[in-house]
Design a protein around this nucleic acid. Structure first.
Length: 606
RNA sequence: GCCCUUGUAGCUCAGUGGUAGAGCACUCCCUUGGUAAGGGAGAGGUCACGAGUUCAAAUCUCGUCAAGGGCUCCA
């Protein structure tokens, strides 16, 4: 859904939008046929080059297709080349694809004749009518279709084999490991070229690449996988993000908490996490006579803080937030840059409220979510509302009230949403929100979950107006989700070209000669005193070199300082986003930069 | 955890059994230069780690760790 007009992201704007549309497979019946057929061509090519390869499944994906094979030897990159060549030949033979309806017995007879055990297993799961598609005279595959009528409808210059990967038969890790070949296919070579261009664009934005190039963070072998080191530049950005986040929460009547990183393991027994998620937790440590646990979640701490004293209904809602660093054991092989790590900081908050406050509180969270995300230019959202699953706890009327509260809040907010029936957690319904980045990818960050479980387990209560003790409703919510992951998404969204307010180094002063170094140093001091992140290029390089370095490091503002500027008390300013801004008095620069910081602008005002 | 690929200087990478290489970055010298790379010299490596084969291993074999592409998983 579109909540507001898409932001004119400077990065994407600068690159220029393309006019070549790349429909997803599910949006294009033509591409669906092409990709379906292409996977058959792939399978036929593989079997002609590797007679021992057994076929399994070969579906389309949103951008292409893949096929899983059981082959004694794994395929290599070199094999892909040969396979692609063979596919080209098959396409060139203009082979017809024909749909044939067969009886189960006929299908079984044909499969046995070819000794394809996986096909037999697939057949067992099929319901009539059983169809297969032939490709040329000899080759066929069980398939529901649809396909192109003839390989002449496939453009041999519009497909590519992309990678080889392992995959489990039926996606089950206890079953055979197969070799999967991924490919992409389009109607025209232009589309293929555009697809490749977009892939390169995604690569150019890769936060791991940019994190290294811009010296933002690292992950150190000696320390362990999935543990993030924030370098000064990254840390500076994180502080700016956190400062904004904190202020936004105070503005919205939250209070902030700090809680420990480890605690007695009994907390996780009480919360139930140990039963369900112990294999995702770091192991416990023995300290004195007690077992301690590195925290995988913050909620029990906030719950204990709530329970620390007797609460009145008059105090509710209580809104507590914490940038809480948690540790979760991720299996080796699943870590991915900042996106999937073992130690990360949740922008966690818990709202303790009365049942009839749910609607207002959720709306409040939605507003805060929009405020925070839009500040980082994420303005397009996709929203999912997940309702009660089969296996769950809590009374029907509480679930109804809670679910109605979520719906009502979304409707008051005017946000369109999809319903994921039965997709909620066992302890309550939830709203998940995905954000769209500058190149159209969706990322799930924010989540708002109602919880009837923890208040029960920790026996939370408040004193109601009639003096009775009642159970509060608990709302968990995170807006960034994980600060590390959000940072990664943000890096990719901006492609490292951060808005001025967020850039770790906002302005670099480039002295043309040594004679103006003193002026540059003084200017740097003035800027820093005003809260502007300024540095002086002390390399002694020639101007052209300093500008090249500054541009490569994506510094938003470069100020050339020579004899003229020193004499006039000015700078010659060059903006990464707006180009040459000409000569500017120092006072004007400082005022403009301060305004940009205060208003969180992407570039200098006016 | 599973399959495949990879690991050489701070970075990007070359080097296929016989003395460890390049570009950029870094240090020094010359150059005082006005909007995307001025010139020269120098320093820098336990070739991820451990074991093995060999007269000899960055190179071959095995193991460990980590990274990358996937699979599985993700409160």
């Amino acid at each position: 859904m579109t909540v507001a007009p898409p932001s004119a992201s400077p990065a994407s704007e600068a690159r220029g939008a393309t006019t070549i549309a790349l429909p997803r497979t599910s949006e294009s019946p033509e591409l669906l046929r092409i990709r379906h057929s292409m996977s058959h061509v792939l399978a036929m090519a593989v079997q002609s080059l590797f007679p021992k390869a057994q076929v399994t499944i070969g579906p389309w994906t949103e951008t292409g297709f893949y096929y899983d094979f059981d082959n004694p030897d794994p395929f290599t990159e070199a094999d892909l080349k040969a396979i692609k060549k063979e596919m080209g030949k098959i396409i060139g033979r203009r082979l017809p694809l024909e749909r044939i309806v067969v009886s189960r017995e006929e299908a079984e007879r044909r499969i046995r004749a070819q000794n394809e055990p996986y096909k037999l297993e697939i057949l067992a799961g099929l319901v009539e009518p059983i169809t297969l598609y032939t490709l040329g005279d000899g080759w066929w595959d069980l398939c529901a279709g649809p396909h192109v009528g003839n390989t002449s409808e496939l453009n041999p210059k519009a497909f590519e084999l992309e990678s080889v990967a392992g995959a489990y038969w039926r996606g089950d890790e206890t079953k055979a490991q197969l070799q999967r070949i991924y490919g992409t296919a389009w109607e025209t070579p232009d589309q293929l070229a555009e697809y490749k261009r977009r892939k390169e664009e995604a690569l150019r934005r890769d936060h791991r690449r940019l994190g290294k190039d811009l010296d933002l963070f690292s992950i150190e072998d000696e320390a362990g996988a999935g543990l993030v080191f924030w370098h000064p530049r990254g840390a500076r950005m994180r502080l700016l993000i956190e400062d904004f986040w904190r202020q936004a929460h105070f503005d919205d009547s939250y209070e902030l908490l700090y809680t420990p990183h480890v605690a007695d393991i009994s907390l996780w027994k009480t919360s139930g996490h140990l039963d369900f998620y112990s294999e995702s937790m770091f192991g416990p440590m023995q300290v004195d006579e007690r077992q301690y646990q590195l925290k995988p979640m913050n909620c029990p701490f906030h719950v204990l803080t709530y329970a620390n004293t007797l609460r009145s209904y008059r105090e509710l809602p209580i809104r507590w937030a914490e940038l809480g660093t948690v540790y979760r054991y991720e299996r080796p092989g699943v870590m991915h840059g900042l996106m999937r790590v073992r130690g990360f900081t949740q922008d966690d908050a818990h709202v303790f409220c009365l049942p009839d406050q749910i609607g207002d509180e959720i709306l409040r969270v939605l507003n805060l979510t929009e405020r925070i995300l839009s500040t980082f230019d994420f303005r397009n959202y996709e929203i999912n509302l997940s309702t009660r699953p089969e296996k769950s706890i809590g009374d029907d009327d509480v679930w109804d009230l809670a679910t109605r509260g979520l719906v009502e809040a979304l409707e008051r907010k005017g946000w369109a949403y999809k319903i994921d029936e039965g997709g909620g957690a066992f302890y309550g319904p939830k709203i998940d929100l995905k954000i769209e980045d500058a190149i159209g990818r969706m990322w799930q960050c924010s989540t708002i979950q109602l919880d009837f479980n923890l208040p029960e387990r920790f026996d939370l209560h408040y004193v109601a107006a009639d003096g009775s003790r009642q159970r509060p409703i608990m709302i968990h919510r995170a807006i960034f989700g994980s600060l590390e992951r959000f940072f990664g998404i943000m890096i990719e969204n901006y492609a490292g070209d951060f808005p001025l307010w967020l850039a770790p180094e906002q302005i670099r002063l480039l002295p043309v000669t040594d004679e103006v170094r003193a002026y540059a140093d003084d200017l740097q001091a003035q800027l820093r005193a005003a809260g502007v992140r300024a540095t002086v290029d002390s390399s002694g390089d020639r101007l052209g070199k300093m500008i090249r370095q500054g541009e490569q490091q994506k510094i938003p503002l470069l100020a050339v300082i020579g004899a003229q500027e020193a004499a006039a008390g000015s700078v010659s300013l060059r903006s990464r986003r707006d180009g040459d801004l000409g000569s500017l008095p120092v006072a004007t620069l400082i005022t403009a930069a301060c305004t940009a910081n205060a208003q969180r602008l992407a570039t200098l005002p006016q």
